[in-house]
Design a protein around this nucleic acid. Structure first.
Lengths: 227, 227
DNA sequence: CGTGTTATTGAAGTGTATCAAATTGCGTGG
DNA sequence: CCACGCAATTTGATACACTTCAATAACACG
């Protein structure tokens, strides 16, 4: 399922402007020695809900989604990560099992950094842990926003936002209506009906399973995204 | 509105097992010199949505709630903080205006630590920034959980959880039905009707504006909280 | 070329929001 | 201490956005 690649961190690290960018000396050496580079196919799970965290995943290329699963199979997409992002560190730092599963969306080249390495590097490098802190703070703001949208916005508004956001998160990918519903916090059926409405209004265009945004400005308005 | 108190950090810091606990030497001295201790009455705003962050608030005693406000006045309670907690650091670290407002719930004795002090202390102390990292990771898990509950659980289930959670967050306080609705992501009317149902089922008891939990076990079950 | 997932459409049901109006409870000032 | 006034609570009626279930159609994939 996964192919091991051997690549030097000095190459990868700087490339995507990731969190480990700027690492030097002993820390970089340690990272290089212990990390494992893998190639993943779409659909592959990096980890499952309930698993104990054993390290973090650094995305070199591709996209990964984080989703929570409820007992009744009502999934919810929590976050999407692209190149340069780091996945699975919250459970690591909180020292608790994963609350969500990480699934590869497409073409992923991912670096696994074992727990001990992460802890060692982070705890000795105030700059790095501060970077994590900044990143996490920003992520928190995003999810805080989604929480409010979910509780005060209509399904139509959330679907409009989902279309825009998912498109932005991964240009190439045709997200399924199920995935859109899992981001928007609604059902596939509602997504389908709403998309039909959007098409009638000339906001989007549907060709088979692909969705094209025609009137971005109006869609933004529908999503009630303000600047 | 607020009364300035002068208290030594060495007294306060250790007491509540807060994040600054264990601080020594230069950092503790700096904290002592620049922090401002205030006394706040219930209803007082620590900061408002849109404000630029100028520091963080360390709760010595009392309770503070964080809430997001939408245009239509549909508020949403995001988090509740008690003694030892730190408020307003996410905006600080993300270097962005507050997304939510912090409101004193009751009897608050709060220490304000200016931005420059926080940055200086945190960036020079890997242990401290890691502590923040752990805290934030845990907070994230909590909000992640709420996001899922909001999108997949019924109002009844969320209200049951709200009752239990709010009770736990502040023993003494009688939360209003509006506040309960703002935590559960619903309306005061729905809360009232649901509370009536709970009372009929013998789960709770309502005396005027106070709510007593009679059957905690069954309420937990209703809330679908699993262990 | 089948087989399973994804998409679509329809009909039906219902959980919640919404609006409005009455009532209660509570803090505050006289 | 009581009465006042305001905010919180309560109740009812109504509406509807959304889910759910079910059945068919289209597509992708090996």
């Amino acid at each position: 399922m996964s192919k091991i690649i051997k690549k030097d961190c000095e190459v990868c690290v700087g490339k995507n402007n990731g969190i480990f960018c700027g690492l030097t000396g002993e820390s970089l050496k340690k990272l290089n020695e212990t990390k494992l580079d893998h190639h993943f196919k779409a659909g592959h799970y990096l980890f499952y809900t309930g698993n104990p965290p054993s390290g973090l995943y650094c995305i070199s290329s591709g996209t990964v989604k984080l989703e929570m699963v409820s007992e009744q199979g009502k999934n919810h997409m929590v976050q999407i990560f692209g190149p340069g992002a780091v996945v699975g560190y919250r459970a690591l730092f909180a020292n608790a099992p994963y609350q969500s599963s990480a699934i590869v969306v497409e073409n992923a080249e991912i670096c696994f950094v074992p727990r001990t390495t992460v802890m060692e590097i982070v705890q000795n490098d105030p700059k790095l842990s501060f970077k994590f802190l900044m990143m996490l703070s920003k992520d928190f703001r995003m999810i805080e926003n989604r929480l409010q949208r979910l509780s005060t916005f209509t399904a139509t508004e959330r679907i409009a936002e989902a279309l825009l956001f998912l498109r932005e998160s991964y240009e190439g990918k045709n997200w399924t209506r199920k995935e859109i519903s899992e981001w928007a916090g609604t059902t596939p059926e509602t997504v389908i009906r709403t998309l039909a409405d959007f098409e009638a209004e000339g906001l989007i265009e549907q060709k088979g399973r692909t969705i094209n945004i025609i009137n971005r400005t109006l869609l933004l308005e529908k999503a009630r995204i303000v600047f």
